[in-house]
Amino acid sequence: MSVYLLRRLIQALGVVLVMSLIVFIGVFAIGDPVEILISPDADQIERERAIVALGLDKPLWLQYLSFLGNALRGDLGRSFVFNEPALQLILNRMPATLELAFGAMFLALLVGLPLGLYAGLKPNSPVSKGIMAGSILGFSLPTFWVGLMLIMVFAVQLGWLPSTGRGETREILGMRWSFLTRDGLAHMAMPALNLALFKISLVIRLTRAGVRETMLMDYVKFARAKGLSPARVTFVHVFKNILIPVVTVVGLELGSTIAFSVVTESVFAWPGMGKLIIDSINVLDRPVIVAYLMIIVLMFITINLVVDLTYSVLDPRVRLEGK
């Protein structure tokens, strides 16, 4: 087990290293941050000063090496735009994104699992067909459009929910969370639903497919023949077996929700990390882009690890060492 963990850790470091190199070269290839950040009427002397101030006067490989040196000491550089440590900037925005992503995931499971189970158990009922048709909509409608429609209906027309922003927050462990206040929850409802819509559909479809497949298995037939109650068959024998694909997908989806909820965050002016990264890309704020992607890589690796560990709990046949 510990050998396994160690190997995963070393893999993670390798990926992070490659990632940072790609981003360094990528940002260098896109353009010149000074061109973008500097006031258009700044003269040549001022431009040269800014290039030196941002450390862009040195050759790229030297910039990269000094970045690596600093990174080993936990310093991922200072944002060009904000003049604050990139890591701190990202961590400040993280709670907003985390609570939104977990809120969306929670909604997806809360709604998706029961509906998927129902559709799987009674595939021919009109309700199931309605659920499946609805899930197609959830897949195919663009997040952007749905977000704006939610705002138009619930904020502009009905006036039930606030249109944008994060609302009132409460501080816990030095971080601000909005799910602890009524106002915060009201602000969170629409963006979380918006993010969840795609995932609800995904969970419905996965669950339904799993149930349909499992119901035909011999052990289910045997359990039924043994006279077990339908509830026990469904919730113990079937449910546990369909969870493996659901856990995998939900884990990966959670990662991408945290990392790339850019669209929802910008439509709802939600001050999270997604908004930060897109703003940073627009102005080529390299320290923030690099730090962000490194954090995301680490997060994905962690999530994958957790998913693998969950397998071994759900299915005793899965052995971690054997992989």
Binding site: D41, A42, I45, E46, R49, A50, F80, V81, N83
Partner: peptide, 9 residues
């Protein structure tokens, strides 16, 4: 320090 576009002019 570190100003990306200063007012020095």
């Amino acid at each position: 320090p570190n100003s990306p576009s200063s007012f020095a002019a």
